[in-house]
């Protein structure tokens, strides 16, 4: 009884969220002021990356601080294929995802000998190795990067097919593409969560020796988990590269491509499918508001915005380390509906 009403509430929340997400940019579109579309786009892309990071960090319990490497691999693969071969960005995204997964599997397998902090440090090391490669490899134009030429595709379909939106609808177009990709990621990872993989990832997180004892190859499943994370980051990287119309090392290998999604995941609820979405919806607008209010005016240039932003994150982490999604929402929902918090409190007393 309680389970089914809980599920109904969850479905209602999902429907409300989808409607809100779809409707959000429409009233703003008429004003011609697209700044808030871009904030929305950044929320969605960071939410998507957080949902991807949750697989290795939240489910498999392995702290990965270098997923931006796969963000870069995705962005570069699609950009190169587009610039040199003229391949559609969507096929480029598929290629980028496959390339990121393959490289991730090769690189991560040796790292799975390491555990805990040592694994985390090794993922940082891989990122440090990737930076000089990105900056000096001539095939990808080194530190100058790649510029993505506009194709001038016609109409909504043409723009979507070439992943290039321009003019008044640019921000709107990318917002909806990010919305769709986030939805696809959530749908696919929900399937993973309830499959054998989801069970095995969490078993390794909770007790690696115990997991091996019931026949789980911990190294293999850690590699699979990280490759899934890499796939999501690669897809995000392609989207970001086409949005920015350029791919260069300092941009796609920026540390923020791991810290923001990780913070969104931890603040929203690590290990919960929807945690990173909630975290991104809360954190990204705060960071944008901070930098446009505190980052300008008399206090500009002193980093006050970053300090306040940092304090907010520390407060959330200290007050609710398991994330905002872990608060007793269903009990509050019941109380709001005017029903007692627990059946045992009434009756037999």
């Amino acid at each position: 009884m309680d389970g089914s009403s809980g599920r109904r509430r969850a479905r209602l929340a999902l429907a409300a969220g989808v409607l809100l997400g779809l409707a959000y940019p429409i009233p703003l579109q008429w004003s011609g002021y697209t700044y808030f579309h871009t904030v929305g786009f950044l929320v969605l892309i960071n939410a998507m990356l957080g949902v991807g990071w949750n697989v290795i960090g939240g489910w498999a319990g392995q702290f990965d601080f270098g997923p931006q490497v796969f963000f870069a691999i995705g962005a570069y693969t699609a950009a190169i294929l587009f610039v040199h071969v003229g391949l559609s960005p969507w096929l480029g995204m598929l290629a980028g995802v496959l390339a990121a997964m393959g490289i991730c599997a090769l690189v991560t397998y040796p790292l799975t000998r390491l555990r805990g902090h040592y694994f985390a440090i090794s993922t940082v090391a891989i990122w440090m190795i990737a930076q000089p490669i990105g900056a000096t490899w001539e095939f990808i134009n080194g530190s100058r990067g790649l510029f993505i030429p506009m194709q001038g595709a016609q109409g909504v379909l043409g723009a979507t097919a070439s992943l290039q939106f321009a003019g008044r609808t640019k921000a709107l177009g990318y917002y909806y593409v990010a919305f769709g990709l986030l939805g696809l990621t959530l749908w696919l990872l929900r399937l993973v969560e309830h499959s054998k993989l989801g069970f095995y990832f969490r078993a390794i997180r909770d007790d690696q020796e115990g997991a091996e004892g019931i026949g789980i190859d911990s190294r293999l499943y850690k590699v699979i988990a990280r490759s899934i994370t890499a796939a999501v980051f690669a897809a995000g990287g392609v989207l970001y590269g086409f949005w920015a119309l350029a791919v260069f090392p300092e941009q796609v290998l920026d540390l923020n491509w791991s810290t923001l999604p990780i913070m969104a995941t931890v603040v929203g609820g690590i290990g919960r499918l929807w945690g990173p979405v909630l975290g991104a919806v809360i954190l990204i607008p705060i960071s944008q508001i901070m930098s446009t209010t505190l980052g300008t005016g008399p206090l500009a240039g002193r980093g006050i915005d970053l300090i306040v932003y940092g304090v907010i994150i520390v407060l959330i982490a200290a007050l609710r380390p398991t994330g905002i999604l872990s608060l007793p929402w269903s009990r509050w929902a019941r109380r709001l509906a005017g029903r007692p918090a627990s059946g045992r409190l009434v009756g037999h007393g």
Partner: peptide
């Protein structure tokens, strides 16, 4: 089984 239990605590 294990002398010091190794159940998956969060499952």
């Amino acid at each position: 089984t294990w002398q010091l239990v190794r159940t998956f605590g969060r499952m």
